[in-house]
Design a protein around this nucleic acid. Structure first.
Lengths: 138, 138
DNA sequence: AACTTATAATTTGATAACCAAACATTAAGA
DNA sequence: TCTTAATGTTTGGTTATCAAATTATAAGTT
């Protein structure tokens, strides 16, 4: 039972630290957190329609509409009509949006590198394996 | 380098899953995410002034003022004047606030239990040790 | 003591982020 | 054809947030 408490404490702390790391990375740039998340989703998974995007972002389609409006307004993403379904749009990053994604991704890799640097190679491998399992269940 | 990419991918996925887990836990209840975070901070670290609370929450004191106003309004927290500094207030949970904290904490322990259940005892111990190290650096 | 600077918290004014529900359009099924 | 379902947008409202201004008190300096 004490172990569970400890595990929870470390998980929560990690989550909070990760969140404020991301906030601090985003701060100096022109993008908001929601815009950055949207770019991350598009950069990671590629072009998709609004519904899938909303699901990946964990928000409603209404919210996603607004976010994509902003990205389109600043030239980072574009809507194109879906071929097979005339109700639907495919959202994708523009070249500028790809640049923004890669830029943010570099920060992520930097963080991952920093984390890996305090662990042994075995620990890194174990952490990846454990997270894989954990991500499969929660 | 591929390892770093993998580590990053798993970390980001874990973060996102954890975030939507928390959102889904909070959804049915009367508390917002910001209120819940404030209750978590007070429940975990005990009574503290506005400035420290703001720091722990990673927001400005102005934002914290609003959050504490809400909690006070719903009877979950209270301000008492600090003894040594008349500019300052000490914020603490009321008994009802403690109940709310314990209720949320139970959900957290449930999640931690679920996570531990797909890992061996050694893996759990390793995960805790690794997270400790990681939390010390980021 | 008087003055200045720093600090704790609040308030103000603004924007961003979000949801639920209503709406318009198109797709799919009966 | 008619009905139901699905996709995305819009509307109306709340919450979360910040930066900057404000108030009150504390601490440091002359």
């Amino acid at each position: 039972m004490e172990t569970i408490e400890q595990l929870n404490a470390e998980l929560v702390e990690f989550f909070n630290r990760f969140a404020s790391w991301e906030a601090s990375v985003i701060q100096p740039g022109p993008l908001t957190l929601a815009e950055t998340h949207a770019i991350e989703v598009l950069g990671h998974h590629g072009r998709m329609n609004m519904k899938n995007m909303a699901q990946k972002l964990g928000v409603t389609t209404g919210t996603t509409t607004v976010t994509v409006d902003r990205l389109e307004g600043s030239g980072l993403a574009r809507r194109t009509p879906a071929e097979n379904d005339r109700r639907s749009y495919i959202i994708e990053l523009t070249p500028e949006g790809e640049d923004a994604f890669l830029d943010h991704h570099r920060h992520h890799l930097q963080l991952a590198t920093e984390i890996a640097s305090v662990l042994s190679d075995e620990e890194v491998a174990l952490l990846i394996a454990i997270l894989e399992k954990v991500n499969g269940t929660i």
